[in-house]
Design a protein around this nucleic acid. Sequence first.
DNA 1: TCAAAAGTGTTTGTCCTACACCCATGT
DNA 2: ACATGGGTGTAGGACAAACACTTTTGA
Lengths: 242, 242
Amino acid sequence: MPNDTWQPPSVLLTVDLVIFTLRSSALHVLLVERGIEPYKGEAALPGGFIADVGEDIVDAARRELREEADLDAAKLHLEQLGTYGRPDRDPRGRIVSVAYLAIAPGLPEPEAGTDASAAFWCPVAEVASGHRPLAFDHRQILDDGLERARAKIEHTALATAFCTPSFTIAELQRVYEAVWGFELDPRNFYRKVQSVPGFLVPVGADRRTTKGRPARLFRADPWQGLRPPILRPLSPSRNEEV
Amino acid sequence: MPNDTWQPPSVLLTVDLVIFTLRSSALHVLLVERGIEPYKGEAALPGGFIADVGEDIVDAARRELREEADLDAAKLHLEQLGTYGRPDRDPRGRIVSVAYLAIAPGLPEPEAGTDASAAFWCPVAEVASGHRPLAFDHRQILDDGLERARAKIEHTALATAFCTPSFTIAELQRVYEAVWGFELDPRNFYRKVQSVPGFLVPVGADRRTTKGRPARLFRADPWQGLRPPILRPLSPSRNEEV
DNA sequence: TCAAAAGTGTTTGTCCTACACCCATGT
DNA sequence: ACATGGGTGTAGGACAAACACTTTTGA
C-alpha cells in the first residue's frame, strides 16, 4: 500500500501494428525481420517505442509504419486493438504495448525501412498454421486482430479498404471470403451488399476482364457503418478455404 | 529519429474501472469522489497507478477495486476496454490509462476505501445527461464502456452477471432493458432467451412474489457465448426509457 | 457459337413481431 | 372474483439460402 514517499513506477511504452492486405486473393499480414535483440532475426509485427513523452500513441503507430515499412499511414484507418502488458512479455523489462489494426489495399512489396532489416507480406494462413513463429506475444496480437477484422467487416464498410478506389462486387466478395475464410454465394452476396443503403456508390463505369461480362464499378467509404450488417453465417454449410 | 544515445521515454501507467450494476431497475456506475489533486473533490471512475513494475495490469485493476470500493473482484469478470493515452489527458504529466469493464450484481452502498474519499453508485443517466461531470477523460471512457456492455450482452450471457445466482426471466429482461435503454416485449423475450441452447439452466424452483403467478428460476454462466445472439432491435419501434 | 463471368427471378423455409389468449397465484 | 404477472399459440411479414435462369462479353 502506497505511503507518503511512494512514487508510481514507470514503464516503457511501445506500439505494435497488425496491417492486413490482400495479395492474389489471400489474406496477408505485414511482418518485419527483427534487426536487434531480443528475437533478432525472427519475424515480428512492425512496431516500436514511442519517440518522446509527448507523442500521442496513435501518432507513434503511424510513424513506425512509415519508418519500418515505408507505408503512408495518413490514409490508413488505425483502430486500437488492445493493450498487452504481461510483466514477462519482453525480456528487456516492463514494456507495455498498445496494438493497432489497419487494412491496406493490395500493394507491392514494401521497402525495408530504417529500423527493420526487412518488411514483407506474410500469408496469414502461414502464421495461423504455426509454420511461422512470431516474436514476443505477437501471435496472440495477430489472432486478436484477425478476429477483430472478421467482426468489423460485418458492421462497417471496412472491407472496401482492401480494394482499389473503385472495385467490382466480385472483388469485394473476394475480400470477405479471404478475411472470413470460407466461400460465399456470388448471387446472394451481390444482392446483399447492394441492399445496404449507402454502402456502394455506382461510379458509372465498367471493368472489363479477358473473360465474361463486364462488371459495374463502385466506390465506398471504408469507415461508414452498415445497417443492416453483412453477417457471416454462424453454423450453416460453409466451404472452408483458409 | 533515434540515435545511439537515445533512450525510450517512460510513462506512468494507471488503470480505470467502469463497474456497472443494477439498482431498482436502473443502470448505475461506480464512481469515487477524488481525495487528492488534480480534480480533488470531483467525481471520477475508480482507478489508480500500478503498484510496482512487476504488477500485471489486470491485477492492478482488481487491487484498485478492492482498495477504493471494498469490492471483491475475484468473482467479477474484468474485460479490457481500451487504453487512453492522450498526452494532455492528465495535468501531472504523461499518464497512460488502461480501462476495464466489469458487471456486478445488485449490491448495497460500497464502503469508502483507503484511497478515495467516498465511493458510490451513480445512475448512468445522470452522467449521460451531463448533470454529473467526470474528471479527466472519464466521460469518454464511460461512454465507451456503456456501448461495449450493450454490445456484449448480445453475444454473451454477461447480462446474468447483473443478477443474483438464480433469477427469473423477467429479472433478466429488466437487465437488458436497463442496459439497452428501451423496453422489450416480455413474451417474445421469454422465448428468445429460452431458445438459445445452453443459455439458461432451470434450477427447479420458483420465485413467488406478492402478486401474480410464480416464475421459474434459472442460473447461467455469465461468460458463456450466445448462439444465436440476442440482438437488440436496430431501428424499429422501441420505447425509449433511459 | 461457346465459355465464362455478371446479374435477375423465384421458391422455400426460417425467423421475428405483434398480439390474442390461457395459467397460477395473492388478496 | 379479480387483478397481476408468468407463460403459450399463432398469423403475417421480413429475410435469407439455394439454385434455375438470362445477359453480356471475349475468343
